[in-house]
């Protein structure tokens, strides 16, 4: 029973964070047909940004907001630095954008390491300071307001982004750019701005995942790779380009890894193996994901 509740709590919270990061992958993929390999590192930027600000004495709520905004800027910067030059020149063996977005991520993480430090940090819970430090015990498992806030905030964000994509001018512009960039430009869409905005939004989502999850999971440099890859698996599983798919994929990956952690005798070592296996199976069986429909991939 304890195990089961533990798995559920972990799935709900970690899954929410993964869903947010996955949504970032999806947004960028929708707009450009590429995958932003700097998405994981942006999570690191957001987490360490909030930590550095709060260490400098900024109130935690303000620090988190600033970190999210700052990471949005960093996301936009990734697009400007990594992607824009590619439009002018022949890509490197057709995968130049993988190289450059990944390189931008490396640079971001190294800047964080040099600018802040490389040790793991915890952030005080966002809501703990506002709602008080309640802890409920469910079958012996501690559930905090933070856990609930993560889930609620994630659901709200995903629904909000989904609605934005479906109903607003920005959403229409994004879908138009995704469909045919040149045609979108012809009918007056500022394609450059739409794409940059998608990258910025993806960065903001990654930072939100980082600050929401930080009270539960340490902010670490490795998270860029660890959570970044898991979120990528979630995005692919759910279907790149689908907001609801990102949500479903996030929870599925988190559930699998929570179960793997629980059943493996030696602690958390099999977690990643399970996720990796899921990834390979997804790619082999249904590369477009559960809810994805876009078959074409840029290559």
């Amino acid at each position: 029973m304890t195990d089961l509740v533990q798995i559920l709590v972990s799935t709900a919270t970690v899954g929410s964070a993964l869903a947010l990061v996955a949504l970032g992958y999806s947004l960028v993929f929708s707009a450009t047909g590429i995958v932003n390999f700097a998405q994981g590192p942006l999570l690191v930027v957001g987490g360490y940004g909030a930590y550095a600000l709060s260490r400098a004495g900024v109130p935690i709520v303000v620090a988190m907001v600033l970190a999210v905004l700052g990471t949005a800027l960093a996301g936009a910067a990734v697009e400007v630095i990594a992607l824009r030059p590619l439009r002018r020149v022949d890509a490197v063996a057709d995968v130049g954008w993988v190289l450059t977005t990944f390189a931008a991520g490396l640079v971001a993480v190294d800047l964080v390491r040099i600018g802040v430090d490389s040790s793991p940090h915890s952030l005080p819970p966002l809501v703990g300071s506002v709602l008080g430090r309640h802890v409920w015990r469910v079958a012996g498992v501690a559930v905090t307001p933070t856990d609930i806030v993560i889930v609620v905030a994630t659901l709200a964000l995903v629904v909000g982004v989904d609605a934005t994509l479906r109903a607003t001018g920005f959403g229409r512009a994004l879908r138009a750019v995704a469909d045919d960039r040149e045609a979108a430009a012809l009918v007056g869409v500022d394609t450059g701005r739409v794409v940059t905005a998608a990258f910025a939004l993806a960065g903001a989502l990654a930072a939100m995942a980082a600050v929401l999850l930080a009270p539960k999971v340490f902010v670490r440099l490795e998270n860029g790779l660890l959570l970044g890859l898991q979120a990528f698996v979630a995005a692919v599983l759910g279907g790149l380009g689908s907001a609801r798919g990102a949500l479903a994929g996030g929870y599925a990956v988190a559930a699998l890894s929570a179960v793997a952690r629980t059943v493996s005798p030696s602690g958390s070592r099999y977690e990643f193996v399970a996720v990796f296996a899921l990834f390979l199976v997804t790619l082999a069986v249904r590369p477009t994901g559960l809810l994805g429909c876009r078959v074409a991939e840029k290559h």
Partner: peptide, 22 residues
């Protein structure tokens, strides 16, 4: 992963590199 192209393949290799220390 070689039935895949582009970023899917790269992601698999990233995951492989991740698994080596494990």
């Amino acid at each position: 992963c070689c039935h895949l192209r582009g970023f899917h393949l790269t992601a698999v290799t990233l995951a492989f590199g991740f698994g080596v220390p494990a």
